[in-house]
Write a protein that binds this DNA or RNA. Structure first.
Lengths: 142, 142
DNA sequence: GTGTTTGCAAAGTGTTTGCAATTTA
DNA sequence: TAAATTGCAAACACTTTGCAAACAC
């Protein structure tokens, strides 16, 4: 049973990489295992870099950046902009929104169905919608 | 008549600063005149710095940054996050949303009434809403 | 073996800060 | 003249890049 628990994340990561056409290198596997653990995650390059180091699977920060962008390019991740000066990557690539916790800079998913947008303005002349980003800023209640 | 046209922006800028309790220095007046020209503007520090220089009213970039933050602190401006790595400041401090033009990084106001949000999720336990940011990304239509 | 990937260190952006000189009230 | 403000240059945080060494197939 311990064998199964150890191997499932590895198999999942391997499949993700193979399907995306990315060589399953040690570094990519390390990061993929950290990212695609089954839960929706929101990470910065620095956090992911630290997590890899903490597991004795160090990946250089430059490679973490490069890998996050590669994963984004092939659709495994999505970039989220909530903070100028820090880039967040989201493992949930489906349409959805976010809570942004102002106190600690944490992001939390809000399912698409939890926000009902009844009307939107027409797109400007010659323009088409690309996507609608909704960030609900929350802070500690009094 | 030319006199009136030249002086009105100056008077408006002066009033803005006085009301905010900021000393009307040459630099603040220059930036206030550029910002509060009656239209809603979305600027970065670099753009504003260039505009001041172009009018032979140079303000050092450090002062532009400091001034934008001071204006924000006293409520004359609002910060908008749409792009990690670049801070935009908005002269429209009322509640409203934005179009973000993906091609050129330009921001455009969307009046509050043009977006109707019929429902929102409950704020997480112990949290309260701070504000809801809506950014409608648009791109050139085919 | 050959092309891909990695890691380092250097460079690049956008932004902030310490402090002496200047300006404002 | 006392306190606030400015501008410079240096420091900063985050990110990207060039290139030689290491790796995957």
């Amino acid at each position: 049973m311990s064998k199964v628990n150890r191997e499932r994340p590895y198999a999942r990561a391997l499949t993700k990489l193979r399907d995306a056409g990315l060589r399953p290198t040690r570094q990519r596997l390390t990061l993929a295992k950290l990212l695609f653990d089954g839960l929706d995650r929101h990470v910065t390059a620095e956090i992911l870099h630290e997590e890899a180091s903490a597991r004795n699977n160090s990946v250089s920060l430059a490679t973490v950046y490069n890998t996050l962008h590669q994963f984004t390019d092939v659709g495994l991740l999505r970039e989220v902009v909530v903070d100028s000066g820090r880039t967040y990557f989201d493992t949930n690539t489906t349409d959805h929104y976010h809570f942004f916790h102002e106190e600690d800079g944490r992001l939390e998913d809000v399912p698409l169905g939890d926000v009902e947008i009844a009307s939107l303005p027409a797109a400007p002349e010659g323009k088409a919608y690309s996507r609608v980003a909704v960030v609900i800023h929350v802070k500690d209640a009094d």
